[in-house]
């Protein structure tokens, strides 16, 4: 019998996954700034401290570098920490431990250890928090062999991928768009996993492939509805994992539609869109392309405070509609 499915918010789905992981395995614990009685800056841990106590829902001092290092050390010696960065921007303070230690420790030691570490990063713009609290830095970490980097877009995937991340023997970095936290969607009860490294076709279509990540999946789906009214049929691929990337799903989709649009919130240059585009250009799908590949990414600027400027910094639904329409009609 299928587990009962309820509507949960993205934040509730993550919280439920963390609670299930802690119930199932004593080694799992949470670390982060103000995740205890405060409930986390975005209320993702919520009241978990009441259920699991302060040893397993551990508030840390404001010490991102040291805290990340403690998580690495705990992971390598038998625990299964889930470490929350209060904002993904603060990864910049913990980068040494993430990039030099967590990612490389197994390799440097010739496979003698594993680092079963999960790190969560509330990311993205749209909250008016300006340039130091709104970035999308997932491609930075996606550049580092040894890490796995995921961006679940739905409550269903947020829960299933977090449970997959906790079970994974290697460090998994989860980028959660802050505007998704309140979004609701169907989430099965109980334990299930959504595999890391698998993209999903969340809307099948014949005219154009849109490869999107995180919140851009929802914007692409909205754009697809608008364009369906114009007779343009878009296929939307939710990449879900950026390292290791599910190349085959993207290749197969592009071979079917012959056109590719990449949509992501991070700064456009040297980003995920560049990687997906190059991957297609190197693949058997290249010969199937009927038009140049198009990327829609963030502007080449820090995220501004003013709400209109902020919106203009990242792709919005009308931008996707316009780009997809032009590409489908061969204007480009």
């Amino acid at each position: 019998m299928d587990a009962a499915v309820r509507e949960l918010s993205y934040a509730q789905a993550i919280q439920e996954a963390m609670a299930l992981a802690m119930e199932a395995d004593d080694r799992v614990f949470l670390m982060g700034e103000d995740i205890g009685v405060y409930g986390g800056a975005f209320q993702v841990t919520g009241d978990l401290v009441e259920r699991f106590g302060t040893d397993r829902v551990m508030d840390t001092p404001i010490s991102e570098l040291g805290g990340a290092g403690v998580a690495v050390g705990a992971a390598v010696t038998g625990m299964r920490p889930i470490f929350e960065f209060q904002f993904s921007d603060f990864a910049t303070l913990g980068m040494e431990q993430i990039v030099n230690q967590a990612a490389k420790m197994r390799f440097m030691l010739g496979g003698e250890v594993s680092v079963p570490l999960v790190m969560r990063f509330p990311a993205g713009s749209g909250t008016g928090a300006a340039a130091q609290h709104s970035q999308s830095l997932e491609a930075w970490l996606g550049h580092v062999p040894g890490l796995k980097v995921i961006q679940p877009a739905t409550p269903h995937d947020a829960k299933g991928m977090l449970l997959a991340a906790v079970a994974d023997p290697d460090p998994v970095m989860i980028f959660e768009h802050k505007l998704l936290y309140k979004m609701k969607g169907p989430v099965p009860e109980g334990h299930y996993t959504v595999p890391i490294g698998k993209a999903e076709i969340c809307r099948a279509g014949r005219d154009l492939t849109v490869v999107a990540t995180s919140i851009m999946v929802h914007k692409a789906l909205e754009a697809a509805e608008t364009l369906a009214g114009e007779g343009i049929d878009i296929e939307v691929v939710d990449l879900r994992t950026i390292r290791p990337m599910d190349k085959q799903t993207v290749i197969d989709s592009v071979m079917k539609t012959s056109k590719l649009l990449c949509v992501y919130e991070a700064v456009k240059t040297l980003g995920i869109g560049a990687e997906v585009s190059a991957m297609i250009a190197e693949s058997e799908a290249f010969d199937y392309l009927d038009a140049p590949i198009v990327r829609l990414g963030g502007a080449e600027t820090p995220i501004p405070y003013n709400p209109d400027l902020e919106k203009a910094t990242v792709p919005q639904v009308p931008d996707i509609v316009a780009a997809a329409r032009d590409l489908a009609k061969g204007v480009r």
Partner: peptide, 24 residues
């Protein structure tokens, strides 16, 4: 648990290992 090429890189890792020792 290893030498380290980053000055002070091993110090928080040791604290994490000690956290494991205490918890387990």
């Amino acid at each position: 648990l290893g030498a380290n090429g980053i000055v002070a890189g091993g110090i928080p890792i040791a604290v994490g290992a000690a956290l494991s020792a205490k918890r387990m």
